[in-house]
Amino acid sequence: MRKNILVAGVTLLALALLFGASYPTGLLFSIPISILNIIFGLVTRTSPGFESRPESANIRLVIDRGVVRASIYQLVFLNSKLILKRLSSMMVTVIPAFVLALLGLEVLWIVGALMGGITGFSLQEFLTQRMRNRMRSEMQLTSVGKSDIDISYDDLLEVRLVKSRLYLITETSSLSASFPRGYSRKMQPMLVNIFESKFTTEESVRAAEAAEKENEKGEHPRGDRGKLSCR
C-alpha cells in the first residue's frame, strides 16, 4: 500500500463531493478519478528505497528510483559496472499526467486539472512499481536490455554527488540522475565504498578548490612595497 497515493485519493474524493454540491455534472469526472487514486494507493507497493545485498556475489547496491531526463530508472551497482534499468519513459511519466490535467481542466477548470495531474502521478507510480516487481531476481537485475544503460567503473573519471543529483563523468560524456529528497544523505557512504577515490561531493570539491587557491597564494606572495627614504 502506498500511503501518499491513498491519502491523495481520499482528499480528492472529499474535494469532489464538496464541489459536486454546486456542480453535479463534474461528479462524472471527479468521483471516478478519486476512486482510481484510492485503488492505486491500495495496490501499489511501498517503494524499497535502498537495497544492500551482501548475500549477492555480484550486486552491491540497488537504488529504486533515479530520474534521467524524463525517464525513471532503477540503479543497480555491481562489482564492476553500474546498470540503469529503465522503469518508465516519458510516455508514462509526463504524457498521461498532461492529458489527464487537460481533461480535468475542460471539466472542472483548475480543480479538475489538479485532479488529473495527481492521477497521472499515481498512474506513473503504479506502473513504475509494477516494473520493479518484475525485476526481482538477480538475473533480471544484472542483465542489460535495449532501453537500459550500463557504465563500466573503469570508464568513469569521477562520480560526483551534488545535493540530490549524481553525476557520472567519463572521458567522452557525462550523465546525471536525480533522486528524491533524502536519498543523497543515505547514498553517500555506500557510494564511497563502491567508487572510493573517484567519488566526490560538492563539499569536497569546494574544499579542494579553496585549498588550491591557498596554495597559489603561498607560491606567489604579494611583494612588499619598498619605502622611500627621505634625505
Rank of each mutant, 00 (worst) to 15 (best):
Ser34Ala: 12
Asn193Pro: 05
Met135Ser: 10
Asp224His: 11
Glu125Asp: 11
Thr172Arg: 02
Gln124Leu: 04
Ile39Arg: 01
Ser30Gly: 10
Asp148Ile: 00
Val162Ser: 12
Arg185Tyr: 00
Ser164Asn: 15
Val7Ala: 11
Lys213Tyr: 09
Asn4Lys: 06
Leu156Glu: 06
Ile38Gly: 10
Ser56Leu: 15
Val10Glu: 02
Phe121Ser: 14
Arg132Met: 07
Ile169Thr: 11
Met135Lys: 13
Ala16Ile: 01
Arg225Gly: 10
Val43Met: 11
Arg45Ser: 00
Asp150Thr: 01
Met131Asn: 04
Phe19Ser: 05
Leu157Ile: 14
Val10Ile: 13
Thr200Tyr: 04
Val62Gln: 07
Val159Ile: 05
Thr142Phe: 14
Ser147Arg: 06
Val7Gln: 05
Gln140Asp: 14
Gly218Val: 10
His220Glu: 08
Asn79Gly: 03
Ile83Leu: 05
Leu228Pro: 15
Leu75Tyr: 03
Glu125Tyr: 06
Val7Pro: 01
Arg160Asp: 00
Pro221Val: 03
Met91Asp: 00
Lys3Pro: 10
Asn215Glu: 05
Arg134Lys: 15
Gly218His: 13
Leu17Ala: 02
Leu161Thr: 00
Leu114Arg: 07
Pro96Cys: 07
Pro24Ala: 04
Ser34Arg: 02
Lys81Ala: 06
Ala208Thr: 07
Leu161His: 00
Trp109Gly: 04
Phe199Leu: 08
Ser89Arg: 04
Val107Asp: 01
Val144Lys: 07
Glu51Gln: 14
Ala113Leu: 06
Asp64Tyr: 04
Arg185Phe: 00
Ser122Glu: 01
Phe199Ile: 03
Leu13Tyr: 06
